[in-house]
Design a binder for these strands. Structure first.
Lengths: 338, 338
DNA sequence: GCGTGGCGGGAAAGCGCTTTCCAGCGCTGC
DNA sequence: GCAGCGCTGGAAAGCGCTTTCCCGCCACGC
């Protein structure tokens, strides 16, 4: 057993060249190697089944081929779509994706960045939404600094006051456009299932929505906070029903929450859209199969992942770059005229 | 810029001890170190913000803290659930998950194992279903052998004739039990949307289902092959409708395919379950929010991921272990009496 | 004819860590 | 009182690779 891994030294010896030459042939350096030797090395490497030891390369080059991807929950379609985009780009670039999940715990995010730093990752994509928690934010920023100091690159998806490259979805504008579209359907009284108030994403979408209502001269919405998950949406919807609000239309700040909310409405016999219209945000792929089809603000999630990966792999300047991605209002069957 | 990483040597020097001692303190070796020195080292490390270089450790120890996870498509809830299970266990064990996606291409799977081997991953979890393609299978087996020779461990989720540890869902038994449950509802004529015929998972579920029908004395089903995706289910359902089959109940071998099929039925005005009953397999979480709720065979997906990770991280014997996971028939609103 | 460059090849010095091996020391046991 | 043991600390040899530096060779140009 344990037929130890073939090393470069073995290949070199077998091919009758020096270690240096073998290395140059097998890993394209700037230096040229004569065709004869090059062929010989290539052939022996092939023959021996040589696979370079990535750790040794990482150590010698002081940089690895790892790209970190940090998400809250990989089963959430929002994150899995972004993950798909990131992995596609990374794999095309010959890099390897390290997946870390935080379970929405800010400390865990810091830990993950630190681990990735220990592994000398090339780059990190942070896909979770930032919070307004100052101390968590500060520790994360410190860890990110340490990482960039060391030559790593970082990009965030969604708002991030971290001075890194960022892919920013049009949360505010999307919320605003959605509000206008819904008022145009004739709705006057709204409720918002707003997620936790300390999440930037949630805040921005809410703020945009409020602004849109104001534009249209509608009354401010009833705002119900809750967890940023399906079950959070479910609970928030129950709360809404219990509140005796006279809202005719409810906006859940994520599709996932909207799904939960629809389940709650269904259970309570509230018909969508006849009794209540509902809209979400993100346009996750699973929406294709909900009934009634959910109105939402479409974000190109996979593409956002690709863009983030692109930013983080591109050498780029030292300026933090920001790519804005617009959301597009998509009205479907879950929102009716009022 | 680039305030180079703090090294062990720096910590050792600063603390006035030898490299060896510092290493022993900071990475728990078998050797003891006096409390005084130990304290001093710990303090300086803390103070300097020392983070061990994982590549160097991997090189010196000839083993890394990487665990590979190979899936076909991370946006598929089936895989993302398994991924969640695997990452949870891996992270608890202080390991780091490397995510590779194959896009269902067998060559890519081989590449990924090879990459993981280059990185001296501790272990690999292969979550995609195996195919009956002989040559692809052989190359994969060779790569896996190389990896295990080198001390790595491999586990597969779902059927795998690869001689590795395996988590085997009760595909056959589940299909059979489902068939029986459906015949008990009074259905006599069935169709199966069976996925590609070369996939073991698809074949086993189909075979079990057929056996169950036979048990109940029902006629063999109409079998329609297609892609193993939502759109494959959609297409297959259209084909079914075009076929003028008189089936009253259709079994899609995965929930994801069933979702596509339901969409097709809905579009064509076929009511579920009044005009047609439908059942899937897996019980992916997104089913919670489909209407009508889909009958299915529940598999504990996250748990399967956890088990696979457990197998692969546990030293274990040299015997290939197999853990069977039973599926449980769950009848919901999508299947009616006939 | 010989100095000058340029170019391909190899020796060897690391990269940051683990681990073996040895030295020194305080004990025990005869 | 001393051999022998167990224990802790340190020196140093790698782990497999990259890369610098040097050397020898050839083609030129004066």
């Amino acid at each position: 057993m344990s037929a130890r891994q073939v090393t470069l030294a073995e290949v070199a010896k077998q091919a009758g060249v020096s270690l240096a030459t073998a290395s140059r042939v097998l890993n394209g350096s700037t230096r040229q190697v004569s065709e004869e030797l090059s062929d010989r090395v290539l052939r022996t490497a092939e023959q021996l089944g040589y696979v370079p030891n990535a750790s040794a390369q990482a150590l010698a080059r002081n940089s690895s081929s790892l790209v970190g991807l940090v998400v809250h929950d990989i089963t959430d379609p929002y994150f899995s779509c972004i993950a798909a985009g990131v992995t596609r780009v990374a794999e095309e670039a010959g890099l390897v994706v390290v997946l870390g999940t935080t379970g929405r715990r800010p400390e865990r995010e810091v830990e993950l960045v630190s681990t990735l730093r220990a592994h000398r990752a090339r780059a990190i994509v942070l896909a979770g939404s930032r919070t307004t928690d100052r101390t968590a934010q500060a520790r994360l920023a410190a860890e990110i600094d340490a990482f960039t100091e060391q030559g790593g690159r970082v990009a965030c998806v969604s708002q991030a006051k971290l001075g890194t490259d960022t892919v920013v979805p049009g949360n505010r504008a999307g919320g605003r456009a959605l509000a206008r579209a819904l008022t145009e359907l004739g709705h006057k009284r709204f409720a918002v299932l707003a997620g936790p108030s300390e999440l930037f994403v949630a805040r921005d979408r809410l703020a945009g929505f409020k602004a849109g209502l104001a534009d249209a001269g509608a009354a401010p919405p009833l705002v119900i906070n809750g967890a940023f998950t399906r079950d959070g949406g479910y609970e928030a919807a129950l709360e809404l029903l219990a509140s005796k609000s006279r809202a005719t239309c409810v906006f859940a700040v994520t599709d996932v929450m909207a799904m939960g909310a629809m389940a709650a409405l269904r259970e309570r016999g509230v018909r969508v859209p006849e009794d209540m219209s509902i809209a979400g945000f993100d346009d996750i792929p699973t929406l294709r199969d909900t009934v009634p089809a959910l109105s939402t603000v479409r974000l190109p999630l996979e593409e956002m992942g690709e863009i983030a990966a692109g930013l983080v792999l591109d050498p780029g300047g030292d300026e933090a770059r920001t790519v804005r991605v617009a959301g597009e209002v998509v009205l479907r069957a879950s929102t009716a005229h009022n």
